[in-house]
């Protein structure tokens, strides 16, 4: 992908993270006291309650994908600025993509399992 398109995506994901991250931080810190949010299942915004709700679980999934892209693209930019060279550049891009993808897959697994577990 051309670098300018990657940069545009970086800006767009950044702005979307404001929304999804805002939702996540609100459910943990604002909409209910921190002690209640840290409970496993016994309060309206506890861990399992958030996963139970399709919309909230969906926003967590969105946050996962957006942060993985934005954060690892940022790391790629920083690493590729420190040293140049064709093999180094390809190695950094590949490693960053693989790690980000692995995290997204692992996180999606967590969200799916937790959602199903909560709705049993």
């Amino acid at each position: 992908m051309r670098e300018k398109n990657i940069m545009l995506l970086h800006y767009i994901t950044g702005i979307l993270i404001l929304v999804a991250g805002g939702i996540h931080l609100s459910t943990v810190f604002l909409l209910s006291p921190y002690e209640e949010s840290m409970k496993f299942d016994s309060s309206p915004f506890s861990v399992m309650s958030v996963y139970r709700n399709v919309l909230l679980a969906g926003s967590l999934e969105a946050l996962l994908i957006l942060v993985a892209f934005h954060g690892f693209n940022g790391l790629r930019v920083i690493l590729q600025e420190l040293h140049q060279g064709r093999t180094y550049k390809k190695a950094v891009s590949l490693t960053v993509t693989v790690v980000a993808l692995a995290l997204v897959i692992y996180g999606t697994r967590t969200i799916l399992i937790a959602h199903q577990l909560a709705n049993l």
């Binding site: 051309r2 670098e3 300018k4 940069m7 590729q80 600025e81």
Partner: peptide, 9 residues
């Protein structure tokens, strides 16, 4: 300059 490190860094 649309691609690569020339401008966007």
């Amino acid at each position: 300059v649309a691609d690569g490190h020339k401008l966007l860094r």
